[in-house]
Design a binder for these strands. Structure first.
Length: 292
DNA sequence: AAAATGTGCAACCGCAACAAG
DNA sequence: GCTTGTTGCGGTTGCACATTT
């Protein structure tokens, strides 16, 4: 690993950032500027909120240097004004290689239901059985799912009441219709003994409700799914490409040559003179930090 | 077209467990 | 055994985008 490959990582980070992430980054970048101006005379404060692409790239770099441990140390050394906790969270939930992006598949959904029945809300335990999925992701999915079910249940009861009172088949929106149909399916399943517990019924409900959108969702998933494997592959590819570059960032013929790879940090200048890349001793960094 | 509402998800917070000194 | 620092976890919040009215 050398500084060129880390620059490649920085390049790749900007490639996989989603639109929302980009917007967050833009907002955060401007706030960084404001904060930097305001905090010039103040002791450095920890940043909060969405991560910028620059921060991501910086974090990826230092995690690749030091490994996924000592997050507080890593946060300090990296120059990121983030807590170790925040760094870890960002890495685990967003930057870790092998993470899957995109919607939860029906198979995963089934597995989550099984595991939730088994372990309850122990999301990290459930996540271990779903490669590429984080506990946060599963937790969010579950939350969304239960929220939908609550809404579905309340609206279906409303529809049932309304229908029984007014007898009007046209009452209710399309959403309401979908919700009520799913509720009907769920109750039918319960009555028919199609599911041996609520979880199964819920699963079928979810599947039925989504049936009309399933193909569309799968298509969306194929389009939107961008795994961290792909990301790291791109880094590797960029590594290879970078090996053709001449020394320094003025190398011609490469898109990345025009701009420096990463933002400045307390150790950045040190890094850029190449001497960093001969270092693998943590102690050296401690001394460096003490000296700065 | 604009406002209101819903949805998805990244990130924060507080707590607990664990390890090292 | 106590203190301190680190890590991991679950619950919750807030924001941006999408959809509906």
């Amino acid at each position: 690993m050398d500084h060129r490959s880390m620059a490649a990582a920085a390049m790749s980070m900007s490639m996989f950032g989603r639109s929302k992430q980009k917007k967050d980054g833009e907002r955060s970048s401007s706030s960084i500027g404001n904060q930097q101006a305001a905090a010039a005379a103040l002791p450095p404060r920890m940043r909060k909120g969405p991560w910028t692409e620059e921060e991501d790239a910086q974090l990826v770099w230092f995690v690749r240097l030091f490994g996924e441990r000592r997050w507080d140390f890593l946060a300090k050394v990296s120059g990121l004004r983030r807590t170790g906790k925040s760094c870890r969270l960002r890495w685990v939930n967003y930057l870790h290689p092998g993470l899957r992006r995109g919607r939860i598949t029906p198979d995963e959904e089934r597995l989550i239901l099984e595991l939730h029945a088994q372990y309850g809300s122990r999301w990290s335990r459930i996540a271990r059985s779903l490669p590429g999925r984080t506990d946060n992701e599963i937790k969010n999915y579950w939350r969304t799912r239960t929220r939908k079910q609550k809404a579905s249940a309340s609206s279906s009861s409303t529809v049932t009441t309304t229908a029984s009172c007014s007898g009007s088949p046209s009452s209710g929106s399309g959403r309401l219709t979908a919700a009520s149909s799913s509720a009907v399916t769920e109750s039918a399943l319960r009555e028919s003994g199609g599911g041996d517990d609520d979880e199964d019924a819920e699963l079928d409900e979810a599947s039925t409700t989504a049936a009309s959108q399933h193909r569309h969702q799968q298509q969306q998933q194929q389009e939107s799914s961008y795994t961290m494997d792909q990301f790291w592959n791109e880094i590797a590819a960029a590594d290879a490409a970078a090996s053709y570059m001449v020394d320094g960032w003025g190398g011609a013929g490469h898109p990345a040559a025009a701009e420096p790879p990463l933002p400045s940090s307390p150790v950045w200048e040190y890094c850029s003179d190449y001497s960093l890349w001969r270092i693998d001793d943590e102690e050296y960094y401690k001394k460096m930090l003490d000296a700065s």
